[in-house]
């Protein structure tokens, strides 16, 4: 008799442990969202629509990966959407108007991103201003720069094929799906980010810094250096995502990526990463990225009027966050 109750207890604990894990919660919610949309409009799962979603997903997803690591360390970056615009704008300006080799132009663009991330990181860690304020100011500076150097106009399209264009925005046919190589970038970077966070020494430090910065420092963890590195990673990956996007649509716009910072943070948090730091999940972020893209896409397909669009996106995110909080609370209180 005792063994039966024990076994039942074990099974219940197992289930509670599982449902308490934020990734699983998000995965279940994602399945529900996908099922709901495909019932409401069968075209949701058509090859054309899936290809469409898969073109957008990697660009925001790549930014979300770096944001996950940054949030886990207890900081966040509001300037990523602006960097998403400035990176390709610099590349295109150099390549088109200064006639510089595209490969070198890409390097300069990434170097600018590194500099932006480094400035963010150094001010946050060494001067001790909250990352909200620092990166909010940086958002204005970077977006303003992009607007000023382009005089507000999108740059001419770049249609010269070449190794870099194929590397960043080449496309290929997989069965009925038209996919972009950016998907490979996303998969590769996801694996790297998951490895770093879960298995590497650095990942242990990132979580520890977000969980209790003083404790990490007292153990000799170089907390400031780690955070600066993560700010740089967030900037560089945003610039890279911007370049991928610009090459895909053959245009660099100074207003590209407006609002992406919040969309990306929403993806990360919906996936289960703690906004307050200390706990992060890459799998959750991938699920969150899928979820937000699917919601944006599905809402249009089921015929929600264009102007009401954001109401639904916001409401759905809120519902998911509430579900998350309720499920994880139930799981945590044993």
């Amino acid at each position: 008799m005792a063994t039966v109750t024990e076994r039942l207890e074990e099974r219940r604990n197992w289930w509670q442990g599982l449902s308490a894990s934020p990734q699983v919660t998000s995965l279940i919610i994602l399945a529900v969202v996908l099922a709901g949309f495909s019932i409401a409009n069968p075209n949701f799962l058509s090859p054309l629509n899936i290809s469409n979603m898969m073109a957008f997903l990697p660009e925001l997803g790549i930014m979300a990966l770096a944001m996950t690591l940054l949030l886990t360390a207890g900081e966040f970056d509001l300037s990523v959407g602006a960097v998403f615009a400035l990176g390709p704008v610099i590349v295109m300006l150099l390549a088109q108007q200064a006639g510089i080799d595209i490969g070198f132009a890409l390097l300069v663009g990434l170097a600018v991103c590194i500099a932006i991330g480094a400035v963010n990181g150094v001010i946050v860690t060494k001067i001790g201003i909250s990352s909200f304020l620092v990166t909010l100011s940086m958002l204005l500076i970077v977006r303003g720069t992009a607007l000023y150097v382009t005089q507000g106009f999108p740059l001419k399209s770049w249609n010269e094929p070449g190794i870099f264009v194929s590397l960043l925005a080449g496309s290929f046919q997989l069965g009925p799906f038209k996919l972009y190589v950016s998907l490979y970038w996303f998969i590769g970077l996801t694996l790297i980010a998951a490895y770093i966070l879960n298995w590497s020494k650095l990942g242990n430090w990132i979580s520890a810094i977000g969980s209790n910065r003083n404790a990490a420092i007292a153990r000799g963890v170089p907390a400031d250096a780690v955070k600066i590195g993560l700010f740089i990673a967030a900037s560089v990956l945003s610039g890279l995502a911007g370049m991928i996007s610009a090459f895909r649509i053959s245009a660099a716009s100074p207003v590209a990526g407006t609002g992406y910072e919040l969309e990306v943070i929403a993806m990360v948090v919906v996936g289960g990463t703690a906004l307050t730091g200390g706990y992060g999940t890459i799998l959750g972020t991938v699920v969150g990225a899928f979820m937000l893209r699917a919601i944006r896409n599905g809402i249009v397909l089921i015929g929600v009027p264009g102007l009401a669009f954001n109401i639904f996106v916001g409401a759905l995110i809120l519902v998911m966050l509430v579900l998350h909080a309720m499920l994880s609370k139930r799981g945590a209180r044993r």
């Binding site: 520890a208 977000g210 990490a216 007292a218 153990r219 963890v221 200390g278």
Partner: peptide, 25 residues
């Protein structure tokens, strides 16, 4: 040094805390 209330990272496992900063790799 075991600092007042600030020695451990609460979100990390016991094992990860025990070896924080000098993880065996």
């Amino acid at each position: 040094t075991i600092h007042q209330d600030t020695s451990l990272a609460p979100d990390l496992s016991i094992a990860r805390n025990l070896f924080l900063g000098r993880e065996p790799v």
